[in-house]
């Protein structure tokens, strides 16, 4: 595993904005970095009929997801010129307005960081076995579908 170049962690519950700030601060000593790109996925309060999404409950097939995250990371280092990358994804309940996905890429010049970040987010959505169950304000629920 490429732990020294970045890591992937499932986080129980929402990703705290303070955690994101700390993650940025931890890169200040890496003075070859000229650009960071960050993607944050936030739980949206969709309206369906009279009900609103109050939260999403995330579950995963952890062993497969960890392999897939590993592949995504390896491919990103092969394909793009990046210095480091980090992925965090929530499991369990994340309320509307809270952060459930944090992708963070760093490179010498901006284009590499931006392109890698976008490619990683697209692959996570398509390839990583995570499921979100939308929980409504009346406590009914339905399985989320990615668009």
């Amino acid at each position: 595993m490429e732990e020294k170049r970045g890591h992937t962690i499932f986080i129980d519950g929402p990703i705290n904005p303070g955690f994101i700030a700390e993650a940025i601060a931890k890169h200040s000593h890496k003075k070859n970095i000229g650009a960071h790109s960050i993607f944050l996925g936030q739980v949206r309060s969709d309206k369906i009929g009279n009900e609103e999404v109050a939260a999403i409950e995330y579950t995963t097939y952890r062993e497969m997801a960890e392999e897939k995250f590993h592949d995504i990371r390896e491919d990103a280092f092969k394909k793009f010129s990046i210095i480091c990358m980090h992925i965090y994804h929530s499991l369990g309940i994340v309320k509307a307005g809270e952060i459930s996905l944090f992708v963070f890429t760093s490179s010498i010049h901006r284009k590499d960081a931006i392109d890698t970040c976008e490619a990683i987010v697209e692959r996570i959505k398509k390839e990583v076995p995570v499921w979100g169950k939308e929980i409504f304000t009346n406590e009914n629920s339905q399985w989320k579908t990615n668009t």
Binding site: Y58, H89, V121, E127, P129, G132, N146
Partner: peptide, 10 residues
């Protein structure tokens, strides 16, 4: 063998 419904992470 895992039976996987469409993924909806992120």
């Amino acid at each position: 063998v895992a039976i996987l419904p469409p993924f909806s992470g992120g």
